[in-house]
Design a protein around this nucleic acid. Sequence first.
RNA 1: GGGCGAUUAGCUCAGUUGGUUAGAGCAUUGCGUUUACAUCGCAGGGGUCACAGGUUCAAAUCCUGUAUCGCCCACCA
Length: 916
Amino acid sequence: MDELSKQYNPKEVEDKWYSFWQANNLFSAKPDPSKKPFSIVIPPPNITGILHMGHALNNTIQDILIRYQRMKNKEALWMPGTDHAGIATQNVVERQLAKESLKRQQLGREKFLEMVWVWQKQYGTTIINQLKKLGASCDWERTRFTLDEGYSLAVSEVFARLYDKGLIYQGDYIINWCPRCQTALSDEEAPHSELRGHLYYLKYPFKENKREFIVVATTRPETMLGDSAVAVNPKDKRYKKFIGQALILPLVNREIKIIADNMVDMKFGTGAVKVTPAHDHNDYLLGKKHDLQFINIMQPDGILNGNAGKYCGLDRFKAREIVLEDLKTRGNLEKIVDYPLSAGHCYRCHTIIEPYLSKQWFVKMKPLAKPAIEAVKKGKIKFHPSRWRKVYLNWMQNIGDWCISRQIWWGHRLPVYYCKDCLKQANECTVNSEQLTEKSFTVNSKQPTVNKKGIIVSKIKPEKCPNCSGSNIVQDEDVLDTWFSSWLWPFATFGWPFETRDERRETRDEEDLKYFYPTSVLVTAPEIIFFWVARMIMAGLEFIADVPFRNVYIHGTVRDIEGKKMSKSLGNVIDPLEIISQFGADALRFSLVSITATGQDVFLSAEKFQMGRNFANKIWNASRFILMNFKVDALPALKSEELNIQERWILSRLNRTIKNVTAALDNFDFNESSKLLYEFFWHEFCDWFIEMAKDDCLPHRQITKSVLIYCLVEFLKLLHPFMPFISEEIFSRLSSRAGSIMIAQYPVYKKEFVDLELEAQFDKFISLVSRVRNLRAKLSLAPSQLIECQIVGGAKEDCEFLQSLANKFKILAKSSSVTFKQSAEKPQKAIADVEAGFSIYVPLSDLGDVVEQIKRIEKKKIELNSLILGIDKQLRNNEFLKKAPQEVVDAQKEKLEFNKNSLEKLKRILDALKAS
RNA sequence: GGGCGAUUAGCUCAGUUGGUUAGAGCAUUGCGUUUACAUCGCAGGGGUCACAGGUUCAAAUCCUGUAUCGCCCACCA
């Protein structure tokens, strides 16, 4: 065996094993009727993405689950892939263009898309390679991309089906418009955030009496250019008399009416509100209701248009300044007050969104939401932690329609075509889908649909209009919201609707979907519950008639040490790749998981990863010790009758660790399971068992070696899902013939090894060793100075038990001799302490500070006294005796007895100390 | 305006269905290279579990309220 270095060096290990796993196809999964499936679809990262800590946490958790289940002999599939991320990707490429002072419009759609594809080929797999660094055991051969040919078919199929069902419609609405990205956004894509704004009070003069005004309050004064009314509450006594009267809109000199609507809040502002139907959601509703004029004053890029008169050509914010100036000059500005307001911001570029009137495509969500609500209510999908269930249900119950069209180029173009001829004579066009020939539209599920306006929805571009046979057909310019493809992820990744075959895999077909769907668990962050999780549930139920996953595990958001979300713009990012290169992927994974309480946000700093690094190093060195001392081959079996106390103890602890880790993992309690592993390995196996095994290292006790190696191997298997690389490296050195640890049998809990009584006795041993060590420290004894220990008290069995460990005790507590007796004469010239119900006597050293020891014991006495008082009081309480369960009462009685006993011993020791 | 989460050691956080001496990691103090490991070992110090009430024989844990911080949702111009 080659020499092992004193320090674990992840760099030498990680890439090697990752290649090995891939070369041996250990990540691949295919339907196997003899095994149970376990599947996860990855939340597809954006192709623009680079691995951040959120990904690291998210994918570590998934990998733990997958590796765990794989070792438990499930057919474990982790389906990978990436998301085309429409707006984000387009922005990246546009920024690139901007460096050459180019705009996408100058290139044209086709040229531009070519560029994006080139970019995608070059950079789109960056994040995949980074996931591999993390150790992710995805079935990479299956890697999908939401803009793949097959996947795109699924998207069109879904659009067509929903359209046929009447769930997709086109409409004029006020939508969230990003003037920078120049596209519509869904409500979810335009989160609101606080702004320090102002409330401007504008004076609108009456037509009949220009010296009288109505004052309206607004936060966006420039929109007054598009006002077509002023609204008041009909119950408002101040304004009742003015209803129906005309005002003159300042600057524009348009005549507008005063209307009444009880939507108006009398208490806000002046109680009179300007109405701009084309630029505000509420005003839009008012406009529809009261048949007002819709005056659009803005171009898509946020610059005012011809309707804005002399303000045409100004940016919306510049226009605000100038409008205000002009109003002020003319005396139409009453006052300005500071006012915090919240406005929607583009989730991609953070530009303030503009409520904008335009024609967009929508999905009716209510009918889709209904079964999705039911499914969760019936427990077909479980949220972990469960509180997210309520969040989900609440959103679903109040769901609004989904704006799915985007005015960008990178994405799935709407499968919507217009027959220009038919559109011209829309009134006469009354074709229904039956009149279409099957030949011209190969759609396997449904006929393409033509509505009477000459709109054709078809998965493939129709050559002729099914109605007029004309070829004057154009496709809708818009593309679909990225999430309109992501919501199909759990089944579209399997090839649904199965019109194309993936050459790379022979087995990819309906069988895969049948076998792996519904997936077992979805692991994701809370930010995308609405964007993605909820919509996947709806899509799964609608198109596959089953839920897409049985469990949703929501982990926390990764934040920096100050609680801020990590983001590049804040400059507070801790780069996982940096951590991997510094500490190793295993250290990153283990640290992340052990500091992440279920569902709580994670506050990170680089130092926290030292914990994982140190743990890896500890594992490395303990293994190194074992490998250096023992030949691994030809180990004797573990015969229980041959095991000594410490061996039985560690096997008991091991098996309880197996049980607890397994239970924690089954419960998605990753932080708990990692802590159990850490505690067992470091503070039980290393601190006690290896230490005790050291003088058993000689050939005379083969079985100790067996236990050491057995425990190590079982531990490594438990560890593997968390720290795949180091566990594989050591495993391979321990058992070169056994193959990869990845496919080793996961440890099985063996009850016959568990002995709780023994563990309790062993705890006493540990406490006594620690106490003697403590006494030594107090006495400032040199390590070389061995002492005689007398330990007195306890039950007979305990004394016998401890006596049989006397040799170990001597080594661990640096004693020349030790005796354990139930009672004995108090030694002369001894210093003492009480621990675990025993009195401990060690010879009084001349160096020893008796005064110090007396102080210590005094303090202990006081503590013990108050404890005894407390328990005593409780035991004299009749209510307690009557109402508490008997075992609690008994336990307290026992405790009282025990502590009284200890107190007695302390007192005697104190007397002796004082006497000396 | 609603909803959710957090508040425990100097710092970052655990603490499962209430059970009486509240744990870990880091930091800190003292000692220490005993042939796995100084990315280490041994020992120690450090907490009225945010606050106020309540339920209970018993509360960090359950209930109510308050405060502070954070997140999510909502069309108050």
